[in-house]
Each structure stands twice: as structure tokens, then as C-alpha cells.
């Protein structure tokens, strides 16, 4: 979770998260959760796994986790700490066989190939790895085509230029995709309100949109965004948040139904 408005959001502070919102409740507004360790330099896997368990407790959606996955054992630890899928990024560019090994150990459906794309000074899109620190040689289009053919189940396409800005997705990125893509594309980077999400989901090349923007975490921003998407005819899965509560205590709850 990253936000450029650091005065409002204390990035990386779990206690802050706990005090400021009930995560398991917010999770009812999403279809999937992505948790990334974006620590630069030395990462502490044990601490991250503890955080992962903490964040995902009571969260009944698929969970993808990653950030610095460079060994089978790291992936295994994440999968044992609440993750259903593992996000790989830098290793997609190394050609050392790790992605193939991960796929054969856990299955392709378990891997999300995450790509950070940024426009260079000369107006060409390039792929960046190592937490956005290293620019990969060659155009992003080349890498996207290669990685779509790697043994990963889904592609997470992030615009570094828009990430954290809240100015909307970079839909131009989708022009880098081959004509027919056989894997789900998750578009990320830049969503700042419901109409941005709607814009992303309205594009036939996009299967899912991701957001890490501050509006998720303030009041019921995310819940309202979801309701507005559904009201605008976007097909999203539905569930009654209070289904179980009502079943266990039929006379009790008189709160409104929330989708």
C-alpha cells in the first residue's frame, strides 16, 4: 500500500492500519487482495509474513502476496501465511528458471506476473524491476509479450507514472498488449475514484482493476465506489455482507444490506 500523501497515511505502519480502519470489513468491498512488501533493500520475510497473517485474518477473498520473491522457500512461506497466490516481478526478467520452478511446484494459477511500466524521457514505455529501481533493456512491449507467455496465471500491469497520483489509469499501456491475450490482465496505478475504476473495467482488454489509493481507506470510499460501479452496469460479484449474521440471529440485525 502506497500513497503519496504521507501526511495522511502512515505507510507501512500496521498499528495505524488497525486503529484507522477495520480491514476485514473493508475487504467485503473487494474481490481480491494484493499485499506487497515494498521495503527497499534487505527485506524481513518473517516480519512480512506476520503482517500478512495479521492483515488477512477474517478476510475471505483470494489473497496475492509478493515483493522480493526470489526463492521457492519465500513463496512457500507466503503461501503458508495466508496467501493463495504469489506475485513475482524482478525474477520475470532474470531468465534463471525460478518462475518455471515456482509454476511446477505450486501451479501456474498460483503466480501473478507483476510488471512496472514507466514512460522514458523519449516517450517510449519501458519495464522496471527491483522495486522500480532498475530499467530493463528494450521496449516494455517486448517484455510484456515475453511474460504473457511465461508460466504465470495472471498479469498485473502497473503504471509507475500514475501510481499513487489518483489521476486515473494509463489506458495507453493496454496498447502494449498483443492482440489476443489468453491470461487475465489486472490494470493498476492511478485510480483515484470510482469513475477511474469504471473506465478501466470498461475496456475489453482489462479483466480486473487494482487500487491502492487513499480513498480506499477513508470512510466508506471503497464501498461507495463498488456500489457506483454496480449501479453503472458493471458486472461484479455480489454478496450480502450480513448474510451470516442474519442467519445466525434472524431477529437481531436491522442494518442496511450492503453489496
Amino acid at each position: 500500500m502506497l500513497s503519496r500523501n504521507f501526511r495522511l497515511q502512515n505507510v507501512g505502519n500496521l498499528e495505524w492500519l488497525k486503529d484507522n480502519y477495520d480491514f476485514s470489513r473493508i475487504s467485503y468491498s473487494i474481490d481480491e487482495l494484493v499485499v506487497l512488501d515494498v521495503t527497499r533493500g534487505e527485506k524481513n520475510l518473517e516480519d512480512f509474513c506476520t503482517a500478512l497473517k495479521f492483515l488477512t485474518d477474517g478476510c475471505f477473498v483470494p489473497i496475492a502476496a509478493g515483493g522480493g520473491v526470489n526463492r521457492i522457500e519465500t513463496a512457500r512461506m507466503l503461501l503458508r501465511s495466508g496467501a493463495d497466490k504469489v506475485v513475482v516481478n524482478s525474477e520475470l526478467y532474470t531468465n534463471n528458471g525460478l518462475v518455471e520452478d515456482l509454476a511446477s511446484e505450486f501451479g501456474q494459477q498460483c503466480l501473478v506476473g507483476s510488471m512496472d511500466i514507466k514512460m522514458s524521457a523519449d516517450g517510449l514505455y519501458q519495464a522496471w524491476s527491483e522495486n522500480g529501481m532498475k530499467c530493463e533493456t528494450g521496449p516494455a512491449k517486448f517484455w510484456i509479450e515475453k511474460i504473457i507467455n511465461d508460466p504465470v496465471g495472471e498479469i498485473y500491469l502497473n503504471s509507475m507514472d500514475r501510481d499513487g497520483t489518483g489521476q486515473g489509469f494509463d489506458l495507453e499501456l493496454l496498447g502494449l498488449l498483443p492482440e489476443r491475450v489468453s491470461k487475465p490482465i489486472i490494470l493498476a496505478g492511478g485510480a483515484g475514484n470510482a469513475s477511474h475504476l469504471s473506465e478501466g473495467l470498461g475496456d475489453s482488454r482489462v479483466d480486473a482493476v487494482a487500487t491502492a489509493n487513499l480513498f480506499n481507506f477513508v470512510g466508506d470510499g471503497l464501498k461507495k465506489a463498488r456500489q457506483s460501479l454496480v449501479a453503472n452496469g458493471i458486472v461484479l460479484p455480489m454478496w450480502d455482507v450480513l448474510l451470516l449474521e442474519r442467519h445466525l440471529n434472524p431477529a437481531g440485525s436491522n442494518r442496511d444490506k450492503v453489496d
Binding site: Y28, F60, V61, P62, W239, V241, L243
Partner: peptide, 9 residues
Amino acid sequence: EKSQTNGLM
């Protein structure tokens, strides 16, 4: 177990 309240139900 990954299907929100529908799954819990």
C-alpha cells in the same frame, strides 16, 4: 473459504 459471506454461509 474465498467467497465472502456466500462461502461462509
